[in-house]
């Protein structure tokens, strides 16, 4: 079984290249219920993400935004008590963490982990080659890897020496978040979930990170951006905005919903429940 349903793919007779139809269904979350230690965190989430789309998930603290991101990425401290997640037709919850990544899912961590002794460059080469192995490809040729790395570093205005350092070790909050987007640029995922990537960033870093995301946006990938604040969405303009409240998506709309939220605050949501 391949990831992409055949009916969504057209073959151009002239150019012989694949064109994936716009708005192909990518991620489909149905009535997802998740508990941790017996406490229900997600109480029936429904969400459809198609290729080329950017979804923003907003909501106050402790409503389940990060839990949703973690469950999709495969963190195993949660119990899925109901519903399911399909990614390009596959039952995502059945796959181990690394296979989800190889299928094209990327989680930008809210709190990136420090790994002393593992350099970023080795980390990325290993990750890319592991993903290539999964797809039956040979390891990435060194020049291609280096070119990709240089481009990503330039895009994110990262110091050249940073990639020789151990992953996130001794990084500032901003450097850690940049490093997440750097990894995303290196791994070229199909679906990136960015969990509060904007938190801890000053305005310059925010702009750089957002520009990075915008440059990586295309018709074949999709983004789910989790954030508290409208601020990030000034730079990364979403197609859809969802409000997560008490484990449920209580309101969905276009980018104007984010502005409305900013103006009226989450109390407005609470009152309208």
């Amino acid at each position: 079984m391949t990831g992409k349903p055949a009916r969504l793919v057209q073959r151009s007779k002239n150019k012989g290249i694949q064109i994936i139809l716009k708005y192909a269904r990518m991620l489909s979350i149905k009535d997802l219920k998740v508990s941790i230690n017996g406490k229900e965190i997600l109480k029936g989430i429904n969400l459809e993400v198609r290729t080329g789309e950017v979804h923003a998930i907003m909501g106050p603290n402790g409503t389940g935004k990060s839990t949703l991101a973690s469950v999709i990425a495969g963190r195993d401290v949660f119990d899925v008590t109901g519903g399911g997640v399909l990614f390009e037709g596959k039952d995502l919850l059945e796959l181990p963490v690394e296979q989800r990544a190889c299928e094209g899912i990327f989680l930008g961590f809210q709190y990136p982990v420090e790994i002393p002794g593992v350099s970023i460059i080795n980390f990325m080469r290993t990750a890319i080659n592991e993903q290539r192995k999964y797809k039956g490809l040979d390891p990435i040729p060194a020049p291609e890897f280096l070119a990709r790395m240089d481009a990503a570093k330039k895009m994110l205005e990262m110091q050249t020496s940073l990639t020789n350092r151990s992953v996130n070790e001794g990084f500032s909050g901003g450097e850690k978040k940049k490093n997440e987007i750097f990894q995303m640029a290196m791994l070229e995922p199909r679906l990136a979930i960015l969990d509060e990537t904007d938190s801890g960033l000053d305005i310059d870093a925010l702009r750089i990170v957002a520009n990075g995301v915008n440059k990586l946006r295309n018709q074949n990938n999709a983004f789910v951006v989790i954030t508290h604040y409208q601020r990030l969405l000034d730079y990364i303009v979403p197609d859809f905005v969802h409000v997560l409240f008490d484990g449920k998506i209580v309101k969905s709309g276009g980018k104007e919903l984010a502005l409305e939220l900013e103006e009226k605050g989450y109390d407005w949501i609470r009152k309208n429940l």
Partner: peptide, 13 residues
């Protein structure tokens, strides 16, 4: 945490 982080990038356990 480091294990999860690495695996989430596609690296086998």
């Amino acid at each position: 945490e480091a294990m999860f982080y690495m695996r989430s990038r596609g690296i086998a356990e």
